[in-house]
Every structure is written in C-alpha cells, then in structure tokens.
C-alpha cells in the first residue's frame, strides 16, 4: 500500500469521525443530508459483501467494518436520537434516492467486469459512491448556512477521492497488472463533483471566513 492510498483512507475515516463528532457534541445534524448518508450506507453494504468471501488484509477488513458500523451509526443518530432527529432539515433534504440509485443499477448491469450478482453489486457501489454526495451538495446550496464541521466533512471526503487518484496514478506506473478502468472513471467523476465545492471552500478559507456559497 502506498502513501497516497493510506492518506486517502485516513482522510475518508477522518471525515466520518468529524461527522460523528459534530452529531455527538452538538446533538445536531443540521446541514447534513440523510439521503447522502443513506446512499453511502448502501454503497458500503453492497461493496463490502466481499467480507464474506474474500480476504485481503486485516487492515482492509477492519476499515470495512468501521465504515459499515459508522455509517449505520450516523443514520441511527439522524433517525432515532431524540434530540438529533429534531435538527434534521427534512423539508430541505428532498433529493430522491431513485434518481441516483436506478441509473447506477442500470449502468452496473450494462457496464461491468462480469455479470454475476456480487460483481454487479460491487460495480453498482462504485457508481453510486461517485454520485452519493449530490444530495448533500444540493442541501448545502439550499440552506447556505454551512457550519465549519459540515464544510470540513465535505472537504475531507473530497480530499479522500483526490488522494485516491494520486494512488491510482502511482499504481499505474508501479503495478503493470493493476488496471481498474471502471473504478478510475467513476473516481474521476466523483472528484469532479467536488471541484465547485473546493473552489468556494478554499476561497472562504483564504479570506479567513466561514464557508459561503453563492
């Protein structure tokens, strides 16, 4: 495992820690999209089914379990915690799941490495992860009040993807057999979705202000 990959994973993990910290300390999930959290949970469940049939390393297994547990934990807080659930922006978070889930499922059935249940589900998770941030970005645009932690959460989630691209470039040169075109294409799309957000985030940061969206 190279440093880019490790830094990417840590950035991903850190983004999740931030969101849990925000919810736990402020007992609020204001500004967070439950739709995005549900989509990420679906991504983890469909991708990490391989926990049952393949083993790569202890590191991978532990990280997979952490991602699964934390995504269910976040959802539990947003849905069932007495105080937290009252802070959820239900009226603003109106993005429909099927708008993303259905096209990803269809695409996974058409473009995949192998037409088997596990492989199609895995491919679906790759496509869905690429676009799962959209409800969160829409919510951000709508509410405009972005607190620091939500901004940082999205920043680290974007950083995770950018670092993975560096990891792929590194692996392209160092591992001739490693060619995951499908993953790379989805990863590029996913990182692209953050471009706009990054621009405003860095601008606000430079100006030493809170993140403001136009």
């Amino acid at each position: 495992m190279n440093l880019f990959r490790l830094a990417g994973d840590m950035s991903h993990l850190f983004s999740i820690v931030l969101i849990l910290l925000k919810i736990y300390t402020s007992k609020s999930c204001a500004g967070l999209s439950m739709k995005t959290q549900e989509l990420y949970t679906l991504v983890f469940v469909t991708r990490y089914l391989d926990l049952f049939y393949s083993y790569v390393s202890l590191y991978n297994t532990v990280m997979k379990l952490i991602f699964l547990a934390s995504s269910f934990g976040i959802l539990w807080y947003m849905r069932y915690h007495k105080q937290v659930k009252q802070t959820y922006d239900r009226e603003q978070d109106t993005f429909r799941h099927y708008i993303l889930v259905v096209p990803c499922a269809v695409l996974a059935l058409i473009v995949n490495n192998e037409l088997s249940v596990t492989e199609v589900l895995w491919t679906f998770s790759i496509y869905l992860e690429a676009v799962a941030i959209l409800p969160q970005l829409v919510l951000l645009q709508r509410t405009k009040n972005v607190d620091n932690l939500t901004g940082q959460y999205i920043f680290f989630l974007g950083a995770y993807r950018a670092l993975y691209i560096l990891n792929w470039i590194y692996r392209y040169w160092t591992e001739p057999k490693y060619r995951q075109y499908l993953v790379w294409a989805a990863g590029l799309v996913q990182t692209g979705l953050y471009a706009d957000f990054f621009y405003y985030y860095l601008k606000s940061w430079q100006a030493g202000e809170k993140l403001r969206l136009p």
């Binding site: 997979k64 991602f67 490495n113 895995w122 990891n167 490693y178």
Partner: peptide, 10 residues
C-alpha cells in the same frame, strides 16, 4: 482477465 482483478482498495 478483468474479472480476476483483486479488489484490494476500500
């Protein structure tokens, strides 16, 4: 063979 690619990333 693409399907035999090891899925070693998260």
């Amino acid at each position: 063979e693409p399907s035999k690619l090891e899925k070693d990333e998260l």
